[in-house]
């Protein structure tokens, strides 16, 4: 399959991208292309114009500033997975990025493109939620920040305005004593997440001081499983307590399809959630 025809524009800067978005009707931003081009080839997307933002230098790279590590929207999954900085400061993100697709997909796909597409079976959205990331947007009205929990609005829908560009995502640097883990039940055909569990826990003196858990794949937007982890703070995160809280997972209208029903996805999420928390705990203690 081949895309239908479109006008092509290359933006040299964020401001130029915003200007083009404002001027061209029916335009789409093109970064790595791994969400957009397949849609265009299947003609599920037929934009009149494509704005290539792939060469905007300021949108790429990993940069730590104190307690925050910023990842540019154009940073590729492979770079994220291999980044020493991220493996130290936000290992959950690096681990999840390393489980996206396959190496060739990770060589092209970008953080911004991934979250802008907001595919519920994608690997990164739950990570953003689990660690409390902040998405930075730029538009004709200026720049703004959206918390990850507010960014994912619905199936394939985000808080991103059509006139805006994602510039970067800020991730809090993991506190000392933090362990994180991303576990994925991979779709055997597409490689996407049937269920992806992103967990982060912080231990101090053997006691949990913070815990978070979020899931890809089970609902239209990533599921922040506060109902599971809220009771963990103060505890020791022993296997019994993790098993006990994992059953508290509650998902309204779970996604289901020919490959995995909603009921099964929720069950998988309970198992993977517990295992991700246990793995995060072990890493925190280790």
């Amino acid at each position: 399959m081949v895309p239908s025809a479109f006008d092509f524009h290359r933006a040299g800067s964020v401001d130029e991208a915003i200007e083009l978005l404002g001027r061209l009707p029916d335009a789409k931003l093109l970064a790595g292309g791994h969400s957009l081009i397949p849609m265009m080839k299947l003609r599920l997307a037929q934009p009149g114009a494509v704005i290539d933002i792939g060469r905007i230098q300021e949108l790429s790279g990993v940069c730590r500033d104190g307690d925050v590590v910023s990842v540019g929207a154009l940073t590729r999954h492979g770079e994220i997975a291999a980044s020493e900085e991220l493996r130290a400061s936000c290992p959950l993100l690096a681990e999840a990025a390393g489980k996206i697709g396959d190496p060739a997909v990770r060589n092209r796909g970008t953080l911004g493109g991934n979250i802008a597409h907001a595919d519920p079976a994608s690997d990164l959205p739950a990570v953003l939620i689990a660690v409390g990331a902040v998405v930075h947007l730029a538009g004709p009205e200026g720049r703004r920040q959206v918390a990850a929990r507010d960014f994912f609005v619905d199936l394939l829908t985000t808080a991103l305005d059509p006139a805006e560009v994602i510039t970067r995502v800020d991730f809090p640097v993991a506190a000392p004593g933090t362990g994180q883990a991303y576990l994925k039940h991979e779709h055997p055909a597409s490689g996407y997440a049937v269920v992806g569990a992103a967990a982060s826990v912080t231990l101090s003196g053997g006691r949990c001081t913070a815990a978070s858990l979020a899931f890809n794949g089970i609902s239209a937007v990533p599921h922040a499983a506060d109902e599971v982890v809220s009771g963990l703070v103060g505890g020791t995160l022993d296997d019994a307590s993790l098993a006990s809280v994992s059953s508290l997972l509650s998902v309204r209208d779970p996604l289901g399809d020919v490959h995995a029903s909603g009921e099964y996805r929720v069950e998988l999420a309970r198992v993977y959630g517990r295992r991700a928390l246990a793995s995060a705990r072990d890493r925190a203690s280790g």
């Binding site: 779709h187 055997p188 055909a189 597409s190 020919v258 490959h259």
Partner: peptide
């Protein structure tokens, strides 16, 4: 045995017609 199946719905729509759905 483990992955492959051309799934049709009852009316005859092929639900696993691409490599996104048909697991090799």
């Amino acid at each position: 045995a483990l992955w492959e199946e051309a799934v049709y719905d009852d009316d005859g729509q092929l639900l696993t017609g691409t490599m996104l759905d048909y697991a090799l």
